[in-house]
Design a protein around this nucleic acid. Structure first.
Lengths: 347, 347
DNA sequence: TTGTAAGCGTTATCAA
DNA sequence: TTGATAACGCTTACAA
């Protein structure tokens, strides 16, 4: 059961193990003959280089860490993360990079880096404490390949993949106003999360810019259950708002369920707009602000892979657009063409 | 930027590095004093043991591999896998085990094991070639901690987590028959996949046992798009079957969309039953056979963790039940109570 | 073109 | 209770 080692090959071949090592790694200065012999024996004996020994001498592991600072149930119950991972994993697959994964409220990514378990890292920028951000910056200075998804609270030189929420949100509000809405309700994400507050502020600003007013506000927790609860609270307030805006799709899903059991018709009685455009949104016909989640993940992993090679690569800001479906009334006027894709380089 | 090593600590403390090593690992035979000193310095200097060096001497990495033999887009677009990963990741999180993840049609799990990158592995049993299965069995004999999700084509002594599809499928067919259905259509998964054929056979058997007949069959590819395409083909055949059974939920979702655009009412004109009960099924009100996907993942990871500790642990067969929702007509009679959870030990 | 030998950072054995 | 020292399996100058 013992694994075959370089020394084993060397012994049975009667050469030095450095020769074997070189032959296996296509070292230019090795005779074609010995190379052939070595490789054949390696195949026959089922030799596989020991990853730990190799990492120890090479000073890097070739692994990239992906640590999401949420519990596993939260991560996978939320299609946002699943879609992000899809992007990350598909680029990793193409690059042949194994991913060390963890979903935990208190992620070990710094430890992973310091222990040399991973050479690179994808972390979530939003919700990253200034304190942790600073430590990541130090590590990046020391040759760690780090990329952030979502902008952290303060500016950073770490390559960051972000999204400009404004175009999609503005389009949504304009469309709502065109369809005759005036009073809207807003269901935000966690009040103590900066990104959720920023999103809510943006909804508010665009609502007013479109000539409407936010007459009710409820706070959710970005989950479906939280959205349903928020919807019930809104319903108790009476039918003042006839358009509901959500901090994310998951909450909108929950609200749609609550609305249905309450017998409120969508979009006749109230229009519903989500944010994210995760896959189930299309299934449910939810009108929502689309952000290219998968592309975010792909780009983040590309940044890390580039950094691993020592190539500096800039961050990137993606755009958003409105995806109109069945939870909003159609406006009298013809719809504008949605804008997809990328915009400007950043950082 | 150089990392702090054991030797560094030993030097500044004026002791041997073996002493430092012991102090850091709570070796019983070490003086409380030196232990304190060592630990304090380690903290102050930000010492982190090098994972590669440690793995090299300890002969194990503490990492568990999860390799899904599908491309990343396929894996994450299918909530089945996301839910499975949820279960796997949450147990891993509790156990403090990092996960090495890969989604690729040709997974490297054997290489991971042989290179010593991982000590354990969760692999998919269905679709596993006899050839690969045999190699995994050899590795398991050599101290690798392996668990399978889903039974492979032939019996194996590897601990396996499976699901008994019969109860849920039988319940679905009985309920359909009670509601007055006689002619059903069947949409299967990939014809070249053994598990999909087995599922289809089970649907057929239960259909007949319930006194109904499969009058149409379409083959899908387990994706939403494939389900929509299959639905369109079925629609062209004319309205002979008024109950449609699916190999999985994803295809049922696609079909629901196709049915809606075709103006066919569900469940009035046709009843729809899925399989899996992935999260979006509840959102859409899809009647479906529930299998405890999350529990499968949890249990598989528990098996691996147990094997890592050297404790043998048996495989397990979970059960299925019918989750009745809005895509089937309610039967005249009162519904039976659904059976949840576990049944019998296996292997 | 190949061999020798030092080193990567730990752990473990054996003495002291 | 602590210190030397030899592994662990691989890479890489430096020699030959």
């Amino acid at each position: 059961m013992k694994a075959v080692t370089l020394q084993d090959l060397a012994d049975t071949l009667g050469v030095a193990r450095s020769t074997v090592s070189r032959a296996l790694r296509d070292d230019p200065q090795i005779s074609p003959d010995t190379r052939r012999h070595v490789r054949r024996l390696a195949r026959d004996l089922g030799y596989h280089p020991n990853a730990a020994a190799r990492a120890l001498t090479r000073r890097h592991s070739g692994v990239v860490g992906v640590a999401l600072p949420r519990s596993a149930p939260f991560v996978f119950a939320n299609p946002y993360f699943a879609t992000l991972l899809e992007g990350i994993a598909s680029v990793a697959e193409d690059a042949g990079v194994p991913i060390l994964f963890s979903a935990s409220p208190s992620p070990d990514y710094e430890r992973w880096l310091r222990e040399g378990r991973v050479d690179g890292l994808i972390a979530l920028g939003y919700g990253l404490h200034a304190h942790d951000l600073a430590r990541l910056e130090v590590l990046a200075g020391g040759s760690a390949a780090i990329a952030l998804v979502g902008a952290p609270a303060r500016v950073t030189e770490l390559p960051t993949v972000t999204v400009d929420e404004a175009p999609g949100i503005a389009a949504a509000c304009d469309r709502l106003a065109d369809a005759g809405h005036r009073d809207v309700a807003l269901v935000t994400g966690p009040v103590n999360a900066a990104y959720a507050r920023a999103r809510a502020d943006m909804w508010r600003a665009s609502t007013e810019a479109a000539g409407m007013a936010v007459v009710d506000t409820a706070h959710g927790d970005d989950t479906q259950a939280g959205g349903a609860a928020a919807a019930r609270r809104l319903l108790e307030l009476g039918p003042v708002a006839d358009a509901w805006l959500f901090g994310n799709d998951a909450m909108a899903f929950g609200a749609l369920g609550a609305l249905q059991t309450a017998g409120v018709r969508v979009p006749t009685d109230v229009a519903v707009v989500g944010f994210d455009d995760v896959p189930p949104a299309a299934l449910l016909g939810l009108t929502t602000v689309h952000q290219p989640i998968r592309a975010l993940g792909e780009h983040a992993m590309r940044l890390v892979v580039a950094a691993l090679r020592g190539d500096p690569a800039p961050g990137h800001a993606f755009s958003t657009h409105l995806e109109e479906r069945r939870t909003t009334r159609s406006a009298p006027s013809a719809p504008a063409v949605p804008s997809h894709g990328a915009t400007e380089d950043v950082t």
